[in-house]
């Protein structure tokens, strides 16, 4: 007996958002990347094909991070002290785009210099994060946005206390913003309303609903993502944005990745476990509808990329 698979028809769809600009588009990127555009829940290819493949960003820092796991120093090595070199290595490792995280030690001059060096070293589209303190973010991101005018960089991180300056400079310089809220559908939607009220077009916002690592609240994270995506498909314009999440940051905070000694033997090889933690965290989020996952370890990048390929082909 033939079985008919029920299909949902949704009135709404996710905005397609393009990050990065090629020479033809007014920038210098080798290619731009488009994310979003879905009209179904994730990977229900029999309802509607997924229009744009989810992408992987690799996180690099303007200065060698002191608090990263030694397991991450192994693959990146000396490049961690030189953002331009790190960017090249990340591109070679298969990144679709780069996240450059500025630090509290940066000055406006050093931040601009680093961003320019990274843009020169790699043709990938770029996301730039401030160090995460409102005043410092504003101090660094405004000159960075001006220096990178036309590149369609994603500026982050916009939060409810700290979005006006970043949104204003994104509007003035043709960039996008990353809107981050703490794992709550109401707050996520509210920040999107506030940002779009300032006049930034919706196709220049990527939302970051925040997530947790496997074993550390990931289920709250993906429930929020699912709810936002359902609302978007039902036609709620203020939730119809692609989602960017940070499984690398979350997974490498988890004890299972962070600690190599003093853990039960049954946990097995540290490195294998750590990479699994990052990979599984990222894949759960991809399957929940993430459009961009930000990772740290090149092996995780390889595995997540392969898995995404399978999801897209299914």
């Amino acid at each position: 007996m033939p079985i008919e698979i029920p299909k949902d028809k949704w009135p709404g769809s996710i905005k397609a958002v393009t990050i990065g600009a090629t020479a033809a588009e007014g920038g210098t990127r080798a290619k731009s990347i488009t994310i979003g555009g879905q009209n179904t829940m994730p990977y229900l290819q029999f309802e509607k094909p997924t229009p744009n493949t989810p992408v992987i960003a690799i996180e690099i820092k303007s200065r060698k991070p002191e608090d990263w796991s030694p397991l991450l120093e192994k693959p990146w090595g000396e490049a961690m002290a030189d953002p331009a070199e790190w960017a090249k290595k990340a591109e070679a490792a298969g990144a679709d785009l780069l996240v450059l995280a500025l630090t509290l030690e940066d000055t406006p001059d050093s931040a601009v210099k680093t961003v320019k060096a990274v843009l020169a070293a790699s043709g990938l589209p770029l996301v730039v994060w401030g160090p995460g303190q409102a005043e410092k973010d504003n101090e660094l991101l405004v000159p960075v946005a001006e220096a990178a005018k036309g590149e369609k960089v994603v500026l982050g991180v916009c939060e409810d206390k700290n979005y006006r300056t970043i949104v204003a400079t994104a509007m003035a310089n043709g960039h996008l913003v990353e809107a981050r809220t703490p794992m709550d559908v109401n707050l996520a939607k509210q920040l999107n309303i506030l940002i779009s009220d300032m006049g930034l077009p919706m196709d220049r916002i990527v939302m970051d609903p925040t997530t947790g690592a496997l074993g550390y609240g990931i289920e709250y994270g993906y429930s929020v993502m699912e709810r936002l995506r359902l609302a978007a498909l039902q036609g709620d314009a203020m939730t119809q944005l692609p989602m960017m999440v940070t499984p690398g940051f979350e997974a490498w905070k988890a004890k299972e990745s962070k600690v190599g000694e003093g853990v039960p033997e049954a946990w097995g090889d540290w490195e294998a476990r750590a990479v699994n933690w990052e990979t599984l965290t990222a894949m759960a989020l991809v399957e929940s509808g993430a459009d961009v996952v930000v990772l740290r370890h090149p092996e995780s990048v390889k595995r997540v990329k392969a898995a995404i390929g399978e999801l897209m082909a299914a």
Partner: peptide
Amino acid sequence: NKVIYADGYLNQ
């Protein structure tokens, strides 16, 4: 519960 609540829901 048809539309997600946000503080600015009236401006949407």
